[in-house]
Design a protein around this nucleic acid. Structure first.
Lengths: 210, 210
DNA sequence: TTAAAAATCCCTATAAATAGGGATGTAATC
DNA sequence: GATTACATCCCTATTTATAGGGATTTTTAA
């Protein structure tokens, strides 16, 4: 099989590892490497790419946004996500953004090849590690099912994580302290958190805030 | 130059990338790969190794402890650390543990080769990214200089992030509530955080807790 | 062995968060 | 026109965290 690959990955060593694996396995394939989202888009505009290996943690952009952008402009390209993070929320976010596979970075080479074959056929693929994560029954404490926040709640959550008190949040948003307290109560309920500490942890771990 | 390398790295792709770089650059060198600290020690007991490329985030053990153990048993081996984390505290911990170089995982291949040449001569080496971090004046908010926590503090920080109150932490660790409060005060000071929310955020963002 | 560092404990107060209620206006959706 | 979601606001009371001190013992390292 001959493909045109694009590896979007800012770690040269990792890019090199994937590159070698791809050219060793799929002889005569082309394999481009981009260290940033910007460079990736430049390459995509100049070359016809079949499959993208996308590191979702890039320095210059957000993985899911880049994924959406690529799939909008080049809907035929298959995108395989590579990530150090295996949280369900990340996986869901990327798959919703149009990715065809999600691999954990500790995946074996054989899994990567299998993923490529699978997405080429039009199917989706998850590495075994990720499948384990996805199959874990959601209980309130494992961050697998994320609460849906309103705009205001997200706003307040960010300020809470920055260490602002209810009064400070109120002043900043020109609302009363009572309102800030109410939103915070709702956040605790939605996340099923015992207190602010757990709330911030869950919010960060789930990727709902940076 | 011919070396005997040992790559201690649990991500096959990364290990593969380093492996290729090493055997391409140092022809006829031997290059072993161990995916865990345990396997690494097994290889070290059976082979004479010159240089170790050590990923400090291993599944089965702590990077600095492994480093100390290796340097104790095999003092002649040069250890080059590879890490995704560039925080000053990590770097200092590893260098104190006997490492000869500290490279960030986004280091260019040329830097890795330079590091090998340098440690072979008996000198220490830091990748440019790390040098920037080390030269950055520590200001409390930029995470480049992370507080160095004691074991007990880390333990308490984890429990705080899980939403436990001082009393609950005290009960869990069989200490008085006052002690838990004291540790927490010190955590706030070390992180320069205004309150628990910011503390948890900074701790998670810096990777000091998961 | 001696000095630091870490872990332990205590005090007084104040500030802030949490728990449990409930209420109102507005905008969008059906 | 009714319903629903959202954002806003208020009350009382309790629990927890924080700020400012300080002190003792055990461990570790020089």
């Amino acid at each position: 099989m001959i493909f045109k690959f694009l590896i979007i990955e800012d770690h040269p060593i990792v890019a090199e590892g994937i590159h070698n694996l791809l050219v060793d396995t799929f002889k005569d394939s082309d394999c481009f490497i981009a260290a940033s989202g910007k460079k990736a888009l430049a390459i995509l505009n100049g070359h016809t790419i079949d499959i993208i290996m996308l590191d979702i943690n890039l320095p210059d952009c957000n993985g899911s946004d880049l994924c959406v952008e690529i799939k909008t402009k080049f809907p035929l390209i298959k995108i395989i996500c590579l990530s150090s993070y295996g949280q369900r929320s990340y996986v869901e976010k990327m798959m919703n953004a149009g990715a065809s596979a999600y691999l954990h970075k500790n995946a074996e080479p054989a899994e990567i090849i299998e993923a490529i074959d699978t997405v080429f056929k039009g199917d989706t693929y998850y590495s075994s590690f990720i499948k384990d994560v996805m199959n874990t029954k959601s209980d309130s404490k494992n961050h697998s099912s994320l609460p849906l926040l309103t705009g205001r709640e997200t706003q307040i959550l960010i300020l809470v994580a920055e260490g602002l008190t209810n009064q400070e949040i109120a002043d900043k948003l020109f609302i009363s302290q009572q309102t800030a307290i109410s939103h915070r109560k709702n956040l605790l309920i939605k996340f099923n958190a015992r207190n602010t500490a757990e709330l911030v942890k869950l919010a960060l771990q789930s990727g709902l805030i940076g």
